[in-house]
């Protein structure tokens, strides 16, 4: 009896401080946002209840839908670009396929420490219409009005951003995988290779299965990070030109802070959360199935 009380008391003592801060700072505003999302409010007076109108308006707005498409592309590049590439880097380093592994490892992770403002600034100095790359191409093509057409096409304007995101975040995944690869006991791999397993077979039969839970977890980070992506894109293009590189977080930001539509903006941020939860649930469904199959 006494022990159970002591355990409960300790539980709350250890859990409560973080939980209180977290609930106050994050969950309270989120609940506030949920209720605001059913209203129309410009910041003054009482919010006007409008039911599902904001959600319907958002989901039928072609700008939002294009933003959603771009977000899904970012999810795609994160899950099927950053994660595999991060794994490849980690694998290369782990199997010592290159000399100076430490050096490369440090360099690949370095972009994480650079703020997105710097990245955007540099990008602009190189690829913008008055940038270095453009100047170079103008000489080669002998066309003084050469510009990179991709930026002005609705379907492609997001592509450069995908590349930069790939560059910025691959390092994080690499570090995570590398660290976990080092936990796989080398003797298992050696044993397999003595038995005549090729490099590819070792990778497929031993390394990948044991890395699977880690990969599944990082995929959750990738999804949540992708759907709320804001800083870098806002600094690079601001979602432009003409909303071509829009993402939902920018859509939400512009409506809230530039157009003063608080209800509408809240609805957009709730949609971001719902989408992430949905995607993560789908991911977990598949992870469970694969894990079960792997036994």
């Amino acid at each position: 009896m006494h022990n159970r009380f002591r355990k409960r008391y300790s539980y709350w003592l250890l859990t409560a401080p973080g939980l209180v801060v977290f609930l106050l700072v994050i969950m309270f505003p989120v609940i506030y946002s949920v209720s605001l999302s059913f209203t129309e409010w410009s910041g003054y007076g009482t919010p006007k209840f409008v039911g599902m109108k904001n959600y319907i308006d958002i989901l039928s707005d072609s700008i939002f839908l294009h933003g959603l498409r771009n977000n899904l592309l970012i999810v795609f590049i994160s899950v099927f670009g950053q994660i595999p590439l991060g794994f490849i880097f980690a694998y290369i380093l782990h199997r010592r396929m290159v000399g100076g592994g430490r050096f490369f490892q440090t360099m690949i992770f370095l972009p994480i420490t650079i703020s997105s403002v710097v990245v955007a600034l540099l990008w602009n100095q190189i690829f913008s219409a008055s940038g270095l790359f453009t100047a170079f191409m103008r000489i080669i093509t002998e066309d003084p009005r050469y510009v990179i057409g991709m930026f002005e096409q609705k379907n492609l304007a997001i592509v450069p951003i995908l590349f930069v995101l790939l560059w910025m975040h691959t390092g994080t995944y690499m570090v995570i995988y590398l660290a976990n690869l080092q936990k796989i006991s080398p003797s298992i791999i050696e044993a397999a290779q003595i038995d005549g397993a090729s490099e590819g077979q070792t990778l497929r039969r031993i390394i990948l299965p044991s890395m699977f839970p880690v990969i599944a977890t990082t995929a959750i980070f990738a999804i949540s990070g992708s759907l709320k992506a804001f800083d870098l894109i806002y600094a690079m293009t601001g979602g432009g030109p003409a909303h071509f590189s829009e993402v939902i977080a920018i859509y939400m930001y512009v409506n809230t802070f530039k157009y003063y539509k608080y209800g509408f903006g809240s609805a957009a941020s709730i949609i971001i959360i719902l989408l992430s939860v949905g995607l993560i649930l789908i991911l977990q469904f598949f992870t469970r199935r694969i894990e079960r199959r792997n036994g």
């Binding site: 602009n124 913008s128 219409a129 453009t134 050469y146 510009v147 930026f151 002005e152 432009g240 030109p241």
Partner: peptide, 14 residues
């Protein structure tokens, strides 16, 4: 083609 080439790609100031 009267404006700067890529006028919608140039950040203000360029």
């Amino acid at each position: 083609n009267m404006f700067s080439p890529g006028v919608n790609q140039l950040a203000y100031g360029q």
